[in-house]
Design a protein around this nucleic acid. Sequence first.
DNA 1: AATAATTTTTAGACTTGCCTAAAAATATTT
DNA 2: AAATATTTTTAGGCAAGTCTAAAAATTATT
Lengths: 218, 218
Amino acid sequence: MISHAEENYLKAIFKISEKEAKAASTNAIAAELQTTAASVTDMLKRLAEKNLIAYEKYRGVELSGEGNRLATALIRKHRLWEVFLVEKLGFAWDEVHDLAEQLEHVQGDDLVDRLDNFLGHPKFDPHGDPIPDAQGRWAFRPQSLLATLKPGDRGVVTGVDDHSAAFLQYLDQLGLTLGAQLELIERIPYDQSLRIRTQDGREITLSEKVGHNLFVKI
Amino acid sequence: MISHAEENYLKAIFKISEKEAKAASTNAIAAELQTTAASVTDMLKRLAEKNLIAYEKYRGVELSGEGNRLATALIRKHRLWEVFLVEKLGFAWDEVHDLAEQLEHVQGDDLVDRLDNFLGHPKFDPHGDPIPDAQGRWAFRPQSLLATLKPGDRGVVTGVDDHSAAFLQYLDQLGLTLGAQLELIERIPYDQSLRIRTQDGREITLSEKVGHNLFVKI
DNA sequence: AATAATTTTTAGACTTGCCTAAAAATATTT
DNA sequence: AAATATTTTTAGGCAAGTCTAAAAATTATT
Ligand SMILES: [Mn+2]
Ligand SMILES: [Mn+2]
Ligand SMILES: [Mn+2]
Ligand SMILES: [Mn+2]
């Protein structure tokens, strides 16, 4: 059996490895889980003992095959519950993460697969993140950071890199939710601000920071 | 804050008090939660400290106002999730209890009320048990144990007292699910067995035990 | 290469929740 | 009322998971 805490560590290691493409460090894991390096070391020993990670002292960790399988299943559950909360219960996309963080730990034979079926096998969650299927396969969808567009390029909002409520609410306010169309008018040389035109013809200026946290499909 | 374990104790005390109408004993709580009397005593001290129960050594416990409120909210969550699992995900009524046992602990502002709304404000769960509303008010529906009917009485199945999978599956097999109509033909004097006629004209003999675990509305 | 800075691990302690065995209190029987 | 049986509490201990402070290892700088 695997505890909630262990599951959370596996997911954290998965996410770090996804970005960094090298062994996850103790400090990175501590930051991701908002805990201390000492607690992380304790847990890494336990996870290594269970063969869920490959752990070398001072060298960071990588998930084992089984660890990877478990982390993927957890992410699948998390994202499916987020879809449920938004599509069926009417929550906003900035309200669902903490609830999904709890729901992902519910254990049950075909609960996830039945949920998946009920939701119509969604491929992406409310933040545009891909949902692995029952076999752990990931959907792929080409997308670029808004910051990489060139003036004149048109795109559709497909996801976010920053998942904070503050950012998501700001996007709501701007009308830049998933599926929103936009066109890059120009990039201001002084501070890399981005002037864009929205579907309904409004012109908006976005900071460089926004440009680096918003994904669009060209 | 209140832990999962504490919530489970409050619910257990509520259920015992509901049946017995007097202070719940340490042993009764231990039996309900399948734990030891010593563990129960430990927890009762903690709950008393938090003013969730009135606890007198050797005299059993009763829920405080706040304890009652929390236990009611927990039962509401448990039963609403059971409705979701059966109505929306297509689980059988004998498969949902353990899942609801986990889902009831998910904490979130209006999660329960949104779920309630999504489900259309059901008043009873898949086992016929009443679901308290957001204010903690219980629906009442008059019903009698099948064993109390007299020959010639007709009734509709409205609930079960025994919630075990074995009993629920047996009822499925007999076609005696919620809403099924039946008529008591006779009670066998020798062993109090009950001969009944179902909607579709079948004659079935049920043990005294079944008669004491099946609720019907006359 | 030596020193300084940073990262990681160890040591020791705390909380929650559980357990078994023994002692104390209460209830039942004789 | 005394003896016996049952229930409940206490005592002591264990595992998971967390923390702070200190030690050890690694990395960066001079
Ligand atoms: Mn999330
Ligand atoms: Mn998400
Ligand atoms: Mn149940
Ligand atoms: Mn139920």
